Simulated assay, not measured.
Amino acid sequence: MSGGIGGLTDMPGPGAGGIGSRGDDGPTGGRALGPGDVLVLRALGLGDALAGVAALRGVRRAWPDRRIVLAGPAHLGRWLQGYGLVDAVLPAHDLEPLALPPGGGHVGVDLHGRGPASHAVVAATRPERLVSWASPEAGYPDGPVWRRDEHEVDRWCRLVTWAGGPCGRDDLRLPNPAAPGDAVVVHPGAAFGSRRWPPDRWRAVVTALAGAGHPVLVTGSAAERDLCAAVAGTAPAGGPVGGSAAVDRGEVRDLSGRLSVPELAEVVGAARLVACGDTGVAHIATALGVPSVLLFGPIPPAWWGPAVDPELHTVLYRGDPAAPGDPHGSAVDPALARITVDEVLDAVDAQLGAPVAGR
């Protein structure tokens, strides 16, 4: 674990840099955690943050008159703060210690993990009450039992509901003010190689979409610029990235490394369709009610797939839920690799209501 960090911010606003940027995550100003506050630990990535939205609404219901402070990445926390889900953000990553004065008379809620390591991070701030999964062997006997084979949204709603804050899948939705546009968003990246469908297959999908006249927006982080350039056809390998490329009739634009999380949400919110793997962009599409084609593997969609509006989302999965793969692996998972270009294009055809080029 890294060293502790401190400081709170009450200032909503977009994060800087590309998707998943840590550039604005240093200590920020604001008053310290106070008595009566509720400290929520969820120091995880974009998909995890969105999967925790329903539970955050439950936290608000459990403690409606208290200030909700989220310990997590600042650029994500501030974005959620803009929706009124939390009141302040304590920048934090993974399971680093939280540099806070202990014994503040606050409530601590562990929405980060099963424990006991995450429990210990929250417990070190000495809350008057710790809400967590039961871990008797580590000295945390109070709480429900963590289950592996449970949807991520249901899991955290079950914990928070147990603590007195009823919530459920319908609490996942975020307001989407955008009118549906014409663009198809293709997001080829993922945090780990096991969840990245081969780029040549994504390139084939983009080519087919553009050939049918659909504008395509390829999104990704700054670290994924080479991948997105290969998928979008905007530059040769190792060449400059940016601009747009015409593929037959449709325009393809490479937006990798250019979007903050709020800007990414705006792009997804205005899309006609999103195509991606098991990654944060899929969760944005779910939260905003945007149709999607989602490629799963190694983790089954029963654990991390769309939890609401199933009619909007086509989920492709060729794995065995009883034998999931490694979500943190470096090589593409066999279950994901079994999904073909034709399967994806068939799903895109059905969502768009018309065949793409050459089909």
Score class of each variant (00 low, 15 high):
32 A>N: 08
34 G>H: 13
98 L>R: 02
12 P>S: 11
42 R>W: 00
63 W>D: 09
74 A>M: 02
49 A>F: 05
23 G>N: 13
99 A>V: 09
21 S>L: 04
99 A>Y: 00
77 G>T: 02
25 D>K: 02
57 R>I: 09
87 D>V: 08
115 G>T: 09
74 A>G: 05
54 A>Y: 02
101 P>K: 12
39 L>W: 08
72 G>S: 14
20 G>S: 03
113 G>E: 12
56 L>H: 04
107 V>I: 15
59 V>H: 03
35 P>C: 05
102 P>K: 12
108 G>Y: 03
89 V>L: 07
14 P>Y: 03
106 H>R: 07
26 G>S: 06
43 A>V: 10
23 G>A: 15
45 G>M: 04
76 L>W: 07
100 L>E: 12
26 G>Y: 06
15 G>N: 02
22 R>D: 09
115 G>E: 11
95 L>P: 11
101 P>I: 12
47 G>V: 04
75 H>C: 12
51 A>I: 00
17 G>Y: 03
8 L>M: 10
27 P>N: 08
103 G>N: 03
112 H>R: 13
110 D>R: 05
85 L>V: 08
95 L>T: 13
70 L>W: 15
79 W>E: 09
88 A>T: 00
81 Q>A: 14
35 P>V: 01
54 A>F: 01
9 T>F: 09
24 D>H: 05
66 R>L: 04
61 R>Y: 07
90 L>Q: 09
110 D>H: 11
25 D>W: 05
98 L>Y: 05
75 H>K: 07
22 R>H: 12
51 A>P: 02
52 G>R: 13
53 V>K: 06
98 L>W: 06
50 L>K: 10
14 P>Q: 00
97 P>F: 00
63 W>L: 11
11 M>V: 15
13 G>Q: 07
27 P>Q: 13
52 G>L: 10
14 P>L: 02
108 G>L: 02
54 A>I: 01
70 L>T: 03
72 G>M: 05
50 L>N: 07
19 I>C: 03
85 L>H: 11
80 L>Q: 10
57 R>Y: 10
84 G>V: 12
8 L>K: 00
47 G>F: 04
66 R>S: 14
61 R>I: 12
13 G>A: 10
48 D>P: 08
115 G>C: 14
111 L>V: 01
45 G>E: 09
107 V>H: 01
46 L>D: 02
28 T>M: 14
61 R>C: 12
63 W>S: 05
99 A>G: 11
